[in-house]
C-alpha cells in the first residue's frame, strides 16, 4: 500500500469508513456503524425519491421530467410483461426499485464530485452489498417457486423433452446452474463496478505520476492516459446502465422460472 502522498492507491476508494462517530454502534452484538457506504446508499435512495417526485405531477400531458420517470417505469413494466407475462406485473415495484437503486448507485459513483471535495462511494462495488441484493432476488424466486408450485418446483431441474436416461446427468447440472445464480448475479455487478473504478484510478495515477516525472512523460504518458480516461468514463456510464439492466433482467428471468416453471 502506498505510503508516499504522490502515489495513488487504486483500492483506497473502496475503503469503508464509519462517519458521524458511529464506529461503535451495535445492534444485538453486531456492528452497524453508519459508514460512507451507508451514506451513499441513503443518498442514492433520496436522489431516486427526488427523481420520482417529478413523476408525481400526474398531468395528462407529461413534462420532460414526468416523461423521464414514466419512461423508466414503462421500461420495467414492459420488461416484466415480455419476460414473465401478465403475472409479472406484481413484481414491478421490486424490480423497479432494484433497477433504479443500482442504476443511481452506479451513476452517483461516477459523478466527478471529487472536484468539490465530496468523494462518491460506489457501494455496488462491494460484494457484501451486491450479494445481499442477489440473495434477495434469489429468495424471492425460491419463495414464489415453492409457494406456487410446491415440490413440483423441482421439475425445473428437468427440462421438457429430456430422455429419461439423461435425467441423472441433466438434473445435477441444472441444480448446480440454479444454485450458482445468486453468486453470478452478485459477482457480475460487483466485478464490473470495481474493475471500472480501478481502471479509472490506475489511469489517473498514470496522469499524475507522468505529469510529475517531467514534461516528456507528461506529454507521452499523461495526455494519452487522460484521453483514454475520458473514453473509459463514457464506457463506465454505459456499464453502469447495462449492469443495472442485467441485474433487473436476470432477476425477472429467474422470477419467470418461478412463476411459469418451463
Amino acid at each position: 500500500m502506498a505510503a508516499e502522498p504522490a502515489k495513488v492507491d487504486p483500492m483506497h476508494q473502496f475503503t469503508i469508513e464509519p462517519i458521524f462517530g458511529s464506529a461503535n454502534w451495535e445492534l444485538a452484538g453486531y456492528n452497524i456503524s453508519f459508514t460512507n457506504s451507508a451514506l451513499w446508499m441513503a443518498i442514492s435512495a433520496v436522489v431516486l425519491w427526488l427523481f420520482m417526485l417529478g413523476g408525481m405531477k400526474r398531468s395528462l400531458v407529461p413534462g420532460r421530467w414526468q416523461m423521464a420517470v414514466e419512461t423508466f417505469t414503462g421500461f420495467i413494466d414492459d420488461m416484466l410483461l415480455a419476460n414473465v407475462g401478465p403475472a409479472g406485473r406484481k413484481y414491478v415495484p421490486y424490480i423497479f426499485t432494484l433497477f433504479m437503486f443500482i442504476l443511481f448507485a452506479n451513476m452517483l459513483g461516477l459523478m466527478p464530485l471529487g472536484v468539490v471535495g465530496v468523494h462518491p462511494f460506489t457501494f455496488t462495488s462491494h460484494f457484501t452489498v451486491t450479494g445481499v441484493l442477489a440473495v434477495l432476488s434469489f429468495s424471492i424466486v425460491l419463495i414464489v417457486g415453492f409457494a406456487k408450485h410446491g415440490l413440483h418446483f423441482f421439475s425445473l431441474f428437468l427440462p421438457h423433452g429430456t430422455p429419461w436416461w439423461m435425467a441423472p446427468i441433466i438434473a445435477p447440472i441444472e441444480l448446480i446452474s440454479f444454485m450458482v445464480r445468486p453468486f453470478s448475479l452478485g459477482l457480475r455487478l460487483f466485478v464490473a463496478m470495481m474493475a471500472g473504478h480501478v481502471l479509472l484510478e490506475v489511469l489517473s495515477s498514470f496522469v499524475i505520476s507522468g505529469g510529475n516525472a517531467g514534461i516528456g512523460y507528461g506529454i507521452f504518458i499523461g495526455l494519452p492516459s487522460l484521453a483514454l480516461m475520458v473514453g473509459i468514463c463514457a464506457l463506465e456510464i454505459l456499464v453502469a446502465g447495462i449492469q443495472a439492466y442485467v441485474f433487473a433482467l436476470l432477476t425477472s428471468l429467474y422470477i419467470n422460472d418461478a412463476e411459469n416453471l418451463h
Binding site: I16, N31, M41, S44, A45, T97
Partner: peptide, 13 residues
C-alpha cells in the same frame, strides 16, 4: 463491516 453493510442496505432498500 459486513454487518453494517447488510443492515444499512436492508434498511435503506
Amino acid at each position: 463491516t459486513y454487518s453494517s453493510q447488510i443492515f444499512w442496505l436492508l434498511v435503506i432498500f
